[in-house]
Design a protein around this nucleic acid. Structure first.
Lengths: 258, 258
DNA sequence: TGTTGCTGACCGTACGAGCGGTCAGTTAAG
DNA sequence: CTTAACTGACCGCTCGTACGGTCAGCAACA
């Protein structure tokens, strides 16, 4: 127990346990009382720190996407060609299931809560921005003749689906490692399931190399590593979390996924 | 209002409205009182018919899978080769988002409730069986040299993911039709995103033909058509819904998805 | 050095709303 | 008359939230 620590802020701990509960039970079935009890805190303390339950979920979500954006930045810095970047994004999305489990599941389970304007527009912007990163990769690949798709937006949703749906079946102690899964998914979607005579072995190497690049990224494997302070570089978070887009229209012209 | 109809069983109406509420709000946030009010019924009536809330969800789930199994039967009867069958299954899964919206969303949203033994083993068996249908198609394709994947089980999960995740972004009034989406997804996963010189145009025809076959299936377009009484043919439901597998182990060796 | 006063993390209780579920009774069809 | 759909009041419970109060640490001041 924190034992009324000397200014020991319980914020992070509350956020962590709350995310775990949401990941395991879902938002509606997560009780603040249970979270408080697990931390030997009073329910009132949680309210003191965050105000209400919804804010907790929002903070989990914002932090999760900050980590994903930092990851995307890393990918763009260390990998140049669109195909490698796409593989890396697939791997990153799948690896989050293992390395950022609680937040990943919490966000994916409760994803639908961000549709009806329940949560801040900032969260919506994060989702749109993240989707655009992958769409841009696909579009660049098509322009360079390295990829082929008549609708990058739609294909991005396909990629998000095959990765994000993993939360329903992926288990860290399963037979396949995340790297195995990423390699298979990337190969399937890049080379296709229909075999062709002139299948180039270079593709397998490219896939493995891209995965390895991200896997060896600094600040990995430490599961409770909150990641670098996500410097506001290329794909940094849009605007500011505190500013409530005034008069922002609720219409969502382009579907987003992650 | 049904006006205390002549033996007019409200069962189906309750099930329908309940599924819609779960699809829109999720199971935990669905109130039996709200469902009853929408039907001008008393909450007690719902309990009278179904016993409790969990049973309602289970019945929605069982009915949903019965429809999917009937669909899979149709596919196997009318399409012979594994590639066409795979395309048809992709299309069927996507089309359910449009033609069987409420039940699809309800099942996909609350999918995770079937992991911890909350619901009957029968529901679990349905999921496993459905997964096996697609795995078998993939395996047959590999054996006949028409498909290539080192791990049919994993690839099946990939396919389920890209289809089922559509519930998070698909809107019936969106720019693309379900047929467009299915065609794109099928082509992407079959031919791959990396273009190859000798891309055969036959594949596009095969994809379109398979989709068209399922689209023209009898008993379609009538949205509230409960479908044929899913005759217990090849892929019929496993065992009996009422029999509670005694001593069934909770272990789920192979992950399932839909 | 002693004291004073402020800040903020934290507690404990209370409250009101809403939930799933119960049950005795009513109504109408067969 | 029997049966079953249905009602509406009711119970027990859980939850999010509100709020008054406690106490440790710290800084300013005498």
């Amino acid at each position: 127990m924190p034992g009324r620590g000397p200014r020991a802020s319980s914020r992070d701990a509350i956020l962590r346990v709350f995310a775990e509960h949401v990941a395991d039970r879902g938002y509606a079935d997560t009780s603040l009382g249970d979270v408080a009890a697990e931390l030997n805190l009073s329910k009132g303390t949680i309210v003191h720190h965050f105000g209400n339950k919804e804010t907790l979920l929002r903070e989990v979500h914002v932090a999760y996407f900050a980590r994903r954006f930092a990851e995307a930045d890393f990918v763009h810095v260390h990998l140049a060609d669109p195909v490698s970047r796409l593989v890396a994004m697939i791997y990153a999305l799948l690896a989050a299931h293992r390395d950022d489990r609680a937040a990943s599941l919490a966000c994916l389970r409760e994803l639908v809560r961000y549709f009806d304007g329940d949560l801040t527009d900032y969260v919506r912007k994060q989702r749109v921005r993240y989707t655009e990163i992958v769409v841009d990769i696909l579009r660049a690949g098509v322009e360079q003749g390295l990829l082929r798709t008549p609708d990058p937006q739609m294909t991005a949703l396909q990629v998000f689906g095959m990765c994000n749906y993993a939360w329903t079946w992926y288990r860290p102690d399963g037979p396949q490692t995340v790297e195995d899964i990423a390699r298979l998914f990337a190969h399937d979607i890049l080379a296709g399931l229909v075999p062709r005579p002139g299948a180039d072995p270079e593709l397998d190497e490219l896939v493995s190399a891209a995965i390895e690049t991200v896997r060896r990224a600094p600040g990995r494997s430490a599961s409770d590593d909150p990641g670098p302070d996500h410097p506001a570089s290329g794909h940094g978070a849009p605007d500011d979390p505190t500013s409530e887009n005034p008069g922002g229209d609720r219409a969502e012209p382009v579907p987003t996924a992650p």
